[in-house]
Design a protein around this nucleic acid. Structure first.
Length: 763
DNA sequence: CTCCTACGCCTTTTT
DNA sequence: GGCGTAGGAG
């Protein structure tokens, strides 16, 4: 035992060891990127277990399933099978697990449905329509964000209505009835026996706060040791729950939170760095450990990270440093267009693979928005490089999958309104818009669920034809429900897919998308079969349960289809957000352009720029050895071509660390000077503008005001500007009329372009 | 009521 | 450029 202890503690530096072995009392670990944060967390848990703490008394909260899984695996490497009993998971999944047990105390069934973000949007859209509110002022996403934010700040619908400040804000933004939507939405969720993502946290808090049958004491006792990963990304609600569990009179306050304020990138969904400050205030006996040594990246990368984050205001003082040697300077790709960016990055990956013997999985392409992945997919395919796109719309978010799942959800919980709405007339069975609206109205009138209305369809004044269709639907679902007792998840799902005629419907569609949809449904069924056939005990505390309800509970919180087989050798394509916590030998950060990164949305919000910069900090620090930044002078957005300026972030890394910087030293001073003087948005030296506070949008040349010359004007020797490729000289004209081709020298290459399609401007 | 087409909006990031 | 919805014809 003693020896074992020594063996794992030996691999830690002084500070890390302190963070691991200080098991009693509140601990704050400020962990820079690559500083061995996960190591500290897992060793700490392992250490607790070695010291005699029961694994099931340890609660570890993370933000992603992936992080939780990794942590469990690494704990088991130190303490073996006992690791399976540790309560480690995402906030949402852990609380869902607890809420299933305690559901009845809150008036829910333990079979409650979890509404994902799309379900929420869809219900809100329906409510807004039913209330006859203008869907433009009450845009679904805006309303959703507002409700989510209310919940995250523990404001109930009733409290919302009483809150003068919120009501005032709504009146100002011409949405005075927002509180009614919130109220209605909350009522509907409850009536449907469903919780959305925020409810999983909100209801957890309510449970602990109302404390029916002493549940609060039960969980305080159950979890004497609490750990929180990525603490900088917790919101007020999450912090409040943790506080309930840990901070009370006579509590041992054995809580360890790990985070890095410089990596806080979720302020947009309510995360607040204030939690770190509050933590210091709430736990006076706090012990703080700062992990600053970076074990991940070479020095140029670390230094670049340090210098760019200096442009932010109010970071906790911290400077990361590395012993890994100078390494290679950061490379910069200047591409004229998004497709050239794709081509050059793919080419560079090929080159790096040969020159440095990198595997595909050593490489990642990171971007600000998921929509950017397409070009890279195209070129990686062309270059025969295997890749995997993470995030974006997950498998379970696809329409056809949601449709099948909706049937299954309905079988388990017929009150699930959203599932009902989705499939009541899909595949079409003669239940039209009017009928559906009437169902909804009756449900509100009788204060009951739509399902209950359907069951009594023949007594409520529906047209005979409609009533017949509705009852046929009810009988079909009831038929499925009878099988719940006997069928396993797969048998039932397959039966449902057939009998609902979903499969037949998809078979009719012979378009490419149609076939792919069908394949997806097949894949879903295969997945359910896997779930049923798999005998492996994931968690030794629970017995295998192959029922449909259990299947649905398992997938409800799966977002990334984390079927990630470790030996899958693929280049990773993902958003920077999704890359947090990961590391790669070689990282490409694409789309380094003003308006894209930093995002134009963020630039309009207070603190937005700083958050974008922290995001860039996260991106940069994912790289171990090779970091390449790239920008494109033009790219398609919403199917339209736009021109872009290089991101200001590029000018925040000095020549010491960045190869072939776009700016000379003098220019760089100039740019920094302008930024400091408060003129937003110019990342490139520009002639002085006459007006102050010029909006950056003016910098973006758009297709509309680009004056294209007529084909007849073109002749050899002319200097022109091409809308995508920039400045060039006409070399010659080939052919005439419709087929005329123009040769243009753009400096680095001569392109042949069909004259009648070329958008050229004579300079 | 169903199917087809046209139009409009979309994209910031996630559990 | 792509998806979802609205509006019209059958």
């Amino acid at each position: 035992m003693e020896e074992q202890k020594v063996s794992y503690l030996d691999g830690l530096n002084e500070v890390q060891r302190g963070a691991v072995t200080t098991t009693e009392g509140p601990v704050l670990v400020i962990a820079g990127p690559g500083s061995g944060k996960t190591r500290v967390l897992t060793y700490r848990i392992a250490h607790l277990i070695q010291e005699g703490v029961a694994p099931y008394n340890i609660l570890t909260l993370t933000f992603t399933n992936k992080a939780a899984k990794e942590m469990k695996e690494r704990i088991s490497q130190v303490v073996g099978k006992r690791a399976a009993y540790v309560w480690a998971g995402t906030f949402h999944s852990i609380f869902a697990r607890i809420l299933r047990v305690e559901a009845e105390k809150l008036g829910y069934s333990s079979n409650f449905t979890i509404y994902d973000s799309k379900d929420t949007s869809s219900i809100l859209a329906a409510i807004i329509a039913e209330m006859r509110l203008d869907s433009k002022t009450y845009d679904t996403n805006g309303v959703k964000a507002r409700i989510s934010s209310a919940k995250s700040n523990l404001i109930s619908p009733a409290a919302y209505e009483q809150n003068q400040q919120l009501m005032m804000q709504d009146r100002k933004s011409r949405r005075p009835y927002l509180f009614r939507i919130y109220k209605q939405y909350a009522m509907r969720c409850k009536r449907a026996g469903a919780m959305d993502f925020d409810d999983l946290l909100y209801q957890m808090f309510v449970l602990l706060h109302k404390n029916p049958d002493g549940v609060l004491e039960k969980y305080r006792k159950k979890f004497p040791y609490v750990l929180v990963d990525e603490f900088q990304d917790t919101n007020f609600l999450q912090y409040s729950i943790i506080k309930k569990l840990v901070n009370y009179p006579k509590s041992p306050r054995n809580i360890c939170v790990v985070g890095d304020d410089a990596q806080s990138i979720y302020a947009f969904r309510g995360a607040t760095i204030e939690n770190i400050l509050n933590f210091k205030r709430d736990y006076p006996k706090l012990q703080t450990f700062k992990l600053e040594q970076n074990y991940r990246s070479t020095n140029h990368i670390v230094q670049a990270a340090n210098e760019l984050i200096l442009h932010n205001t109010g970071q906790i003082q911290k400077k990361i440093w590395s012993f890994k040697g100078e390494g290679q300077k950061i490379q910069l790709i200047k591409a004229v267009s998004d497709s050239e960016e794709g081509r050059r990055i793919a080419g560079m990956i090929l080159e790096q693979k040969t020159r440095y013997h990198l595997k595909n999985k050593d490489v990642a392409i990171l971007y600000r928005t998921n929509a950017q992945s397409r070009v890279f997919e195209e070129f990686l395919r062309r270059y025969d490089i295997l890749y995997k796109v993470y995030g974006g719309l997950s498998f379970y978010q696809r329409k056809e999958i949601k449709d099948v799942i909706a049937y299954l959800r309905l079988v388990v919980n017929p009150n699930d309104e959203e599932a009902l709405r989705r499939v009541l007339n899909y595949p079409t069975r003669g239940i039209g818009k009017g009928t559906i609206e009437m169902v909804s109205q009756l449900a509100n009138e009788y204060d009951t669920t739509p399902w209950a209305i359907l069951e009594k369809a023949n007594t409520l004044g529906f047209k005979p034809k409609a009533a017949k269709s509705l009852l046929a639907f009810v009988n079909m679902i009831k038929g499925f429900q009878r099988r719940l007792a006997t069928d396993n998840a797969f048998e039932l799902a397959e039966h449902v897919a057939k009998k609902s005629t979903i499969l037949a419907k998809l078979d009719q569609d012979t378009t490419v998308q149609g076939i792919s949809r069908r394949d997806n449904v097949r894949e879903l069924l295969d997945g359910i079969k896997d779930f049923v056939d798999n005998d492996e005990l994931i968690d030794e505390a629970t017995l295998p349960d192959k029922s449909l309800p259990n299947y649905l509970q398992n997938i409800a919180l799966l977002t990334d289809q984390d079927s990630d087989k470790e030996n899958d050798d693929r280049v990773a394509l993902m958003s920077i957000h999704a890359a947090k916590g990961l590391e790669f030998k070689s990282v490409f950060v694409a789309g380094m352009e003003e308006q894209l990164f930093p995002s134009f949305m963020a630039l309009q919000e207070a603190g937005g720029l700083d958050e974008e910069r922290r995001l860039f900090y996260v991106a940069v620090t994912r790289a171990e050895e090779f970091l390449t930044l790239s920008f494109a002078g033009s790219r398609y957005r919403y199917g339209k071509l736009n021109n872009y300026q290089p991101s200001r972030f590029l000018s925040e890394i000095s020549e010491e660390n960045l190869e072939q910087p776009i700016y000379s030293k003098a220019e760089r001073q100039n740019v920094l000077g302008e930024q400091r003087s408060g003129i937003k948005g110019f990342s490139k030296p520009m002639p002085r503008r006459s007006t102050l506070g010029t909006n950056t949008n003016h910098e973006v040349k758009n297709t509309a005001d680009y004056k294209v010359c007529k084909p007849g004007q073109i002749e050899a020797g002319l200097k022109i500007e091409h809308i995508r490729f920039g400045a060039g000289v006409i070399v010659k004209l080939e052919g005439a009329g419709k087929n005329a081709i123009v040769h243009i020298d753009f400096g680095h290459e001569v392109k042949r372009i069909v004259l009648r399609f070329a958008k050229l401007k004579i300079v």
